[in-house]
Design a protein around this nucleic acid. Structure first.
Lengths: 209, 209
DNA sequence: TTTGAAATTATACACTTGATTAATTACTGC
DNA sequence: GCAGTAATTAATCAAGTGTATAATTTCAAA
């Protein structure tokens, strides 16, 4: 009986592969389905190998979560561009309610992980980091946006607007990604932009460009 | 060695106890922690008994989810009262962003279950039912509310408003329940009501009553 | 009080899980 | 080419899982 052949990979590559395999498993089978064996199979590797790159399965999952959130925010932020603030904000919103950010697979992974945040401190920390980053980004853009329009809003007001807008985006993102509604027939981007403009007291036409 | 004493319970009571124990387990330990033994312990019962009331563990969990969602919607709807539509809507919103609807434990359970919806058809169905009910309630209230104000909005417009409002409530509910922000210092009810009024194009003063 | 049926317990089983370790293989530097 | 190191495999373990079933106990009816 001969052993299966294999080839070595740089540490970073193997880690990435394992994380990607973990995310795939979670997306398709849920967190419970992301067993060591399942992940190893998808990564084309043997279960024992995981322990060489991650102390625990817990660490692997946490690493996968961190990667996932970071990528998610990066995808959303990539829609910003570098024009005036209201254009950046519009870009962020558009990116948030369309693929690949708003997407069934993305939601599945997010949901699976979110479910652990309350009972797992490690996951809670990983979550807090990523969430804070997104909220800060929105708050900054909202602030610039209002200042750009001559509105002199207090920091408190800006914060409240950011909180509400963040909530709206979260909710829209979930609804759209879930796909239950007949969103396919609607222009989700326009709905999202108009709602945002209304909330911030800005002329909607400015967002539609 | 003598057996532990026990006493019989009506079927409905035992089922309720088991469901309650399941929800407690999920809230504190996550879905993975809601094992047959854990649930049985919390219900003051032996693991084997579960099988007498639920065919599978899967059925038990699905039943727990259905109960949870139904209760959640009932709690939210209980805030409506029976006045004019805009008062009912305000009540629904207030209830949605305050305890016991907006609450860490509630969010934990919701999140844990949501994570299974994508990979488990049974859970997906249970989810769809409850979600639809809430969305219909909002759509109806929004419709009445706009009609009450003399606005003659098309069904399409009402639908879009309902979708956006639903998203906003979902997002606010999540943020508040998560508790990460310093919401304690803010008047979340006022924020929610004002945002809603702004979105629907209604005078905010009318909501504050 | 006795009896019988149904609820509950206790025990056990087969399986999966994450983890551990020794044997083997691939690759790097000489 | 060759040797040594480190990555990878293979095999195994103990613990925990959901499930099944037989032995008990409770309780209501007679």
């Amino acid at each position: 009986m001969t052993r299966r052949t294999f080839h070595r990979e740089p540490e970073a590559v193997r880690q990435n592969d394992l994380i990607a395999a973990t995310l795939d498993s979670v997306a398709e089978l849920g967190l419970a389905g992301a067993t060591v064996r399942e992940v190893a199979n998808r990564a084309g590797v043997t279960p024992g190998l995981i322990r060489r790159y991650f102390d625990n399965k817990e660490r692997l999952v946490a690493a996968a979560y961190r990667t996932f959130i970071a990528d998610l925010i990066e995808m959303a932020a990539a829609g910003c561009g570098d024009g005036p603030a209201h254009t950046q904000l519009a870009g962020l919103i558009r990116a948030s309610v369309t693929a690949p950010v708003a997407d069934g697979r993305t939601l599945s992974i997010w949901a699976a992980f979110i479910g652990t945040v309350n009972s797992d401190p490690v996951m809670a920390e990983a979550h807090r980091e990523g969430y804070q980053a997104f909220r800060d980004l929105i708050e900054q853009l909202v602030g610039e946006c209002l200042r750009e329009r001559g509105t002199d809003a207090s920091q408190q007001t800006i914060r409240q607007h950011a909180i509400v807008l963040n909530a709206l985006l979260d909710g829209l993102w979930i609804e759209i990604s879930m796909g239950g509604d007949d969103f396919s027939r609607m222009d989700v981007v326009r709905i999202a932009l108009d709602s945002t403009a209304t909330l911030l007291g800005i002329d909607p036409a400015e967002f539609r460009e």
